[in-house]
Every structure is written in C-alpha cells, then in structure tokens.
Amino acid sequence: MPDATQGSIYDLGYRGYDGPRLGRGYALLSLYIHSLRGVFGLGRRTGSKVFPIGLTVLAFIPAVIQLGIGALTESTVEFFHAHSYYGYTQVILALFCAAAAPPLAGRDQQTHTLSLYFSRSLERMDYAMAKFGALATALLALTLAPQVVLFIGNGLAGNDLRGYFGDEWTQVVPIVASAVVLCAFIAAISLVIAAQTPRRAYSTVSILAVFMLTWIVSSIVAELTEREIGLAALLLSPFHMMRGFTLFLFGETPGATSPLGIVDYPGWIYLLAAIAWTALAGYLIYRRYEGINA
C-alpha cells in the first residue's frame, strides 16, 4: 500500500518500467525494417503484395531472357547489356515508385499516427531517413539484383567462368555504383512528392507523371531545339539523367540519334545533376517532416 498521505487519488497501482531503454537508434532501425517490409506488402494483406512483388518479378525479365539465351546458344551473345539495363526496366521502376511511395509516406498521415512516432525517442529526421532508406533499399531488389543475375548469367553462359570473371570484374564497380545512385535518386524524388499529401490518388499520378511526362517532353525538346535548352530539359528528366550517369559510370557513349547523343554533353553532368537532385529532394523531405503537424 502506498503512503496514504500522498498520491492516493492518482496512484492507480500501475507499475513503472525500469527495464532497458533501447533508444533512438533501435527505434530508427525498427521503423526502417517495418517500412521495408511494408514496401513489399509483407505483413499486410495479399492485395498489398501483388503489385510490388509483381513489378519486382517484371524487372528481372530481361536478365532472365539473357540467361535463357546464354543457356540455349553456345555463343556468348550479349542481347541485354548491363549499361542499358535500366532503359528496359525504367517504366517498371517508375510504376514501383508510384505504387510504393504513397502508402509509405502517406499511411501514417492518413491514420494520424505520426504523433505516436514523434512522441517517442524517434526524431523527425530519423523518421524521414527510415522511410527514404526503406524505399531506396527496396529499389535495389529491382536494380542491383537483376544486374547481378545478368552478370553471373553471362559468366555461366560462356565456357570459361574463371576467365570471364577475370576479364569482367571491372564491371562490378559501375554496376554497383549506378544501382546505388539510381535507387537513392528515384527514391528521393518519389518520396518528396508522396510526403506532400496523404491522398494516394494525387501522389501516385504525380510520381508517374514526373517520370513519364518529363521523359516524353524532354526527348522532344532535346531533338527540336538548341543544345543548351535541350540540356536544361534533360536535367529535369529523371529517366534521361539515369541513362546519362549510367552510361558515364560504365564508360559508354550514348547513341548519336538518342536525345543524350543529340545534346552531346559529357556524362558527368548527369551524375552531378542526379546527386544534386537527390540532395535537394532529401532536404525537402526532411523539411516536410520537420514542419508537419503531428
């Protein structure tokens, strides 16, 4: 029995918690893992799994086709090249972002649970980082993983596996670097849009429009106007920047008739622009969560 002279009204007999406090880092890690699982719909109903997992499977198709070609024919025909892989899957990547980012950023706003997160040891910065990290990591499954399949598949198709890896190991750096930059880049763009509104309809369409409309419009501007205006248009288009910095990292040049070839500026511009856009979008995501009413 507590002392009758103090707190007799308020002390309802609940026990305090004096176990270990896991703290901010643990909260961040938990939210990151929870968000990453949520991107693929793990721990959610089947309906939430169909699109993320279906799109991930689609992103592997070119790599699997290349594997099949390698297995069926004796020669080592490279039908799908590593440096142009994202050219085949870019629409799938955009659809994945449009499907995954809005619930990732919007669900907690929709259900008014943000205040629960921010009343714990998790900082607003941590929340933004966990969400961004989750989407970027999830995207690696659609970018880096197929590239690895393609790389190993090409190695297995030839007879001389040891020789293949000996010759081609320099490809590992551009494969990993381009995938990491690309995932961070499109994750940041998608999240900065998705974080603005809890309304799924607006953010889904906006994300896809940012990728597809800029791609269509910038291609035309690059073809029909002067070089400087063309470059400015391409630096507003995520798909063109992706293409530009991937080719740059692999040390390849764009085709002369492609928009990048017509504009004809060195590839490092696109890498720099993509990093700058990622940083700007990251800052805006942080600002959004710093100022949001929770």
Binding site: G47, V50, F51, L58, V91, I92, A94, L95, A98, A99, R200, A201, T204, V205, L208, M212
Partner: peptide, 15 residues
C-alpha cells in the same frame, strides 16, 4: 488499386 492497374495498362501495355 485502379490507379496502379490503369497506369500499368497505359505505360507498360500501350507504351
């Protein structure tokens, strides 16, 4: 998920 299905139809199928 009509939006995503619709976007998939437009940009994957038709595109």
């Amino acid at each position: 998920h009509a939006l995503i299905v619709g976007l998939g139809y437009v940009f994957l199928w038709e595109g």
